[in-house]
Computed example of a mutant assay.
Amino acid sequence: MKDETYTCCLTLLLKIRYKQGGLSMLYIMIYVTPIVAVIFFINGVALAKKIKNGDENTASHTGWGAAMLGFIIYMLIWSNFLTQ
């Protein structure tokens, strides 16, 4: 049962790869992910400065950092599927 599910998911991903959805995901990976990575780095530096200075309001930086890290990890996973 597990192998059939894995094969079905892999087949679906390979079909998406050759359709317009896979191509648009590739463009997002190429153009948007580096911008998000730079913003993620800047956000991390700002968060570190806030923690060092003892500011209590770090929730917004932490939330945005978590969202951007999730996006970067998601794009790394998709890049693996789309470039095989």
Results as ranks from 00 to 15, higher is better:
I72A: 02
V45A: 14
K49P: 00
K15F: 07
S24E: 10
P34N: 03
W64A: 11
E56V: 11
E56A: 09
T11P: 00
I30T: 08
P34D: 06
I42G: 01
L14Q: 12
Y74W: 11
M1Q: 14
S60K: 09
K49M: 15
T7K: 15
C8F: 13
N80C: 13
L69N: 10
M25F: 08
F71D: 04
Y31Q: 07
M29H: 02
K2G: 13
N53I: 01
K2L: 10
H61D: 12
N57I: 00
T83Q: 01
A48G: 11
N57W: 05
G65R: 09
N57Q: 06
E4D: 08
F71N: 06
M1N: 13
F71G: 03
G44N: 08
L12R: 05
M68S: 03
I30A: 06
E4Q: 07
T7I: 09
L47W: 04
D55N: 07
L12P: 03
Y6W: 14
I51G: 00
D3N: 10
N57R: 02
Y18M: 08
C8A: 11
T33V: 15
E56R: 09
K2S: 04
K15L: 08
C9P: 01
V32D: 03
T7V: 13
L47T: 06
D3Y: 05
N43Y: 00
I42S: 07
M25A: 12
A67H: 12
F40W: 12
K19A: 11
N57G: 01
K50V: 02
L14H: 03
G22E: 08
T83M: 06
Y6L: 15
M25D: 03
K15N: 11
V32A: 07
I77M: 10
R17I: 01
T5H: 13
I16V: 14
A37C: 10
I42A: 14
G63T: 13
W64R: 04
L13C: 12
S24R: 13
L14P: 00
I39M: 14
Y27L: 15
Q84A: 03
